[in-house]
Measured scan of single mutants.
Amino acid sequence: TFTSYQLEELEKVFQKTHYPDVYAREQLAMRTDLTEARVQVWFQNRRA
């Protein structure tokens, strides 16, 4: 599960791009204290 802060950050990036590159995902992962893999999976699920 994600915190409301994490979801907010993820959604913010999703609004800009549905396909963030690895750099964007790593920045987001650091900001949200998630792994890059978790961020990647979240985007895959969000796009589905």
Rank of each mutant, 00 (worst) to 15 (best):
T1I: 12
T1H: 12
T1F: 11
T1C: 11
T1E: 13
T1W: 12
F2I: 07
F2E: 03
F2L: 14
F2K: 02
F2N: 02
F2D: 02
F2A: 02
F2S: 15
T3Q: 06
T3W: 05
T3N: 08
T3D: 05
T3I: 06
S4Q: 13
S4T: 12
S4Y: 09
Y5D: 08
Y5W: 11
Y5K: 09
Q6P: 01
Q6T: 03
Q6W: 02
Q6A: 05
L7T: 07
L7K: 05
L7M: 07
L7F: 04
L7Q: 07
L7Y: 05
E8D: 15
E8G: 08
E8C: 13
E8F: 09
E8R: 10
E8L: 11
E8T: 08
E8M: 13
E9G: 02
E9T: 05
E9I: 06
E9K: 03
E9Y: 04
E9M: 09
L10K: 15
L10W: 01
L10F: 04
L10D: 00
E11H: 03
E11V: 13
E11T: 03
E11G: 02
E11N: 05
E11A: 04
E11R: 03
E11I: 13
K12F: 06
K12T: 06
V13K: 03
V13M: 14
V13E: 10
V13I: 09
F14Y: 12
F14H: 01
F14Q: 01
F14D: 05
F14P: 00
F14A: 02
Q15L: 12
Q15K: 10
Q15D: 07
Q15N: 09
Q15G: 07
Q15S: 13
K16W: 11
K16R: 12
K16L: 12
K16H: 10
T17A: 05
T17N: 13
H18Y: 05
H18T: 07
H18F: 09
H18E: 08
H18M: 12
H18S: 08
Y19V: 04
Y19F: 11
Y19D: 05
Y19R: 04
P20I: 05
P20Q: 02
P20N: 01
P20R: 01
P20M: 03
D21V: 02
D21S: 11
D21L: 03
D21Y: 02
V22L: 14
V22A: 14
V22Q: 15
V22G: 08
V22I: 12
V22F: 14
V22P: 11
Y23L: 13
Y23K: 12
Y23E: 11
Y23A: 12
Y23I: 11
A24F: 14
R25L: 15
R25M: 14
R25N: 03
R25V: 15
R25A: 05
E26T: 12
E26L: 15
E26I: 13
Q27H: 07
Q27A: 12
Q27K: 08
Q27P: 15
L28A: 02
L28M: 03
A29V: 06
A29T: 05
A29K: 05
A29G: 08
A29S: 06
A29M: 09
A29Y: 04
A29F: 04
A29R: 06
M30G: 11
M30W: 08
M30K: 13
M30P: 00
M30S: 10
M30L: 13
R31P: 00
R31T: 10
R31C: 06
R31E: 05
R31W: 05
R31G: 04
T32N: 03
T32D: 01
T32L: 15
T32W: 14
T32A: 08
T32V: 12
T32P: 00
T32S: 04
T32K: 00
D33V: 05
D33M: 11
D33P: 12
L34E: 01
L34Y: 01
L34V: 04
L34R: 00
T35K: 04
T35M: 04
T35L: 06
T35F: 03
T35C: 05
E36Y: 06
E36K: 06
E36D: 08
E36F: 07
E36W: 06
A37W: 14
A37I: 11
A37L: 15
A37H: 11
R38N: 15
R38L: 14
V39Q: 01
V39F: 02
V39H: 00
V39M: 11
V39W: 02
V39S: 12
V39D: 01
V39L: 08
Q40T: 09
Q40Y: 13
Q40G: 09
Q40D: 15
Q40V: 09
V41Q: 15
V41T: 12
V41Y: 13
V41G: 12
V41P: 01
W42I: 03
W42F: 03
W42D: 02
W42V: 15
W42T: 15
F43K: 00
F43S: 00
F43A: 00
F43D: 01
Q44Y: 11
Q44D: 10
Q44G: 05
N45Y: 10
N45H: 12
R46V: 02
R46L: 02
R46M: 06
R46Q: 05
R46A: 07
R47Q: 05
R47F: 03
R47M: 04
A48C: 10
A48W: 07
